[in-house]
Design a protein around this nucleic acid. Sequence first.
DNA 1: ACATTAAGTGATT
DNA 2: AATCACTTAATGT
Length: 215
Amino acid sequence: MKEKEEILQAIRRKYPQLSEPRLQEEIAEHGKLLHFNAGDTLMDFGSYIRMVPMIIEGSIKVSREDEDGNELFLYYLNAGDTCSMSFSCCMMNKKSDIRTVAEDDTTLIGIPIQYVDEWMSRFKSWQQFVMQSYDLRMRELVQTIDEIAFKRMDERLMNYLEKKSEAAQSKVINSTHQQIAFDLNASREAVSRLLKQMEKEGSVQLGRNKITLLD
DNA sequence: ACATTAAGTGATT
DNA sequence: AATCACTTAATGT
């Protein structure tokens, strides 16, 4: 089958840690290759998760929403990442607390939850993989949290831009000040002013709908 | 040329 | 740092 071959190749390329041949086969066997276009919502608040995604290409924006409907950007998932949130959600069969939207055109392997659990006990490298992504995401989250709590907006902005650029694999970010403000839960004016300042300092170059990271 | 949307600015709280 | 009230600039029709 073509899809199986594709998955097998993708696993070997992007997830070399999962080295056990039997595991690779099973992933190819039970995983579904899914494609999303930029802007597609993969998962919204309140929806049940039936699959754990393993990103092959593209990137996904993960965000949270508060009671008043303000959105807050949490982190990006890039190729080689999984959604740690989905592990716990799946296992507990809970509703999603987060929203995930494809940032670029994205392809991923969807693993049905039953196997995620089963493989944990059967494959060492899978278990390690799950634990590792938990650890990684935890660190990132903690970092994001104390950014919000302790750091000033300009640092948050810079960080956001760097991550976004990393996710897009480009120094050029196509985004309006409004959208950025929305992600950071700030006002558009604040973002505009900070960007202006950063431009004066020479760290970015601004254009309409476009920000270029210079450093 | 005109309308629309993005970005910049100063004042106010 | 948020909000308001504009202004200015870029783009689409």
